[in-house]
Amino acid sequence: MSDIDLETARKVAHLARIAVPDDHLPRLAQELGHMLRFMEQLNEVDIEGVEPMVSVTPMRLKRRADGVTDGDMQDKVLANAPDAREGFYAVPKVVE
């Protein structure tokens, strides 16, 4: 399970939206395989009937009214954008 082939390495790089040149894929596959082998120690643990932890401390999340509490700050929202034009984020063409 823990051996990562080049195709899998290419796939996770794409899932993570990180460009990895082909000649880096073997090293990436090796590193990921090593990390996964480390994780596979978990297979030694008997987890029969154990519930996965979903909350770190036993607390109920607070609820709040579903109302607008913030907004009207387009300038601030766009202030850090690498490319903002006419009140919008600008990106390469998405739809032909």
Binding site: M1, A13, A16, E31, L36, V50, P52
Partner: peptide
């Protein structure tokens, strides 16, 4: 950072979610 950001989708992907992520969360309970 790249390594960890790529391990994430692997352990969360459909075929491996139970084998890695869910198992790790159960071990966390223990």
């Amino acid at each position: 950072v790249q390594r960890r950001v790529m391990v994430g989708p692997y352990v969360l992907s459909a075929g491996f979610y139970d084998a890695y992520y869910n198992r790790a969360r159960k071990v966390r309970t223990l």
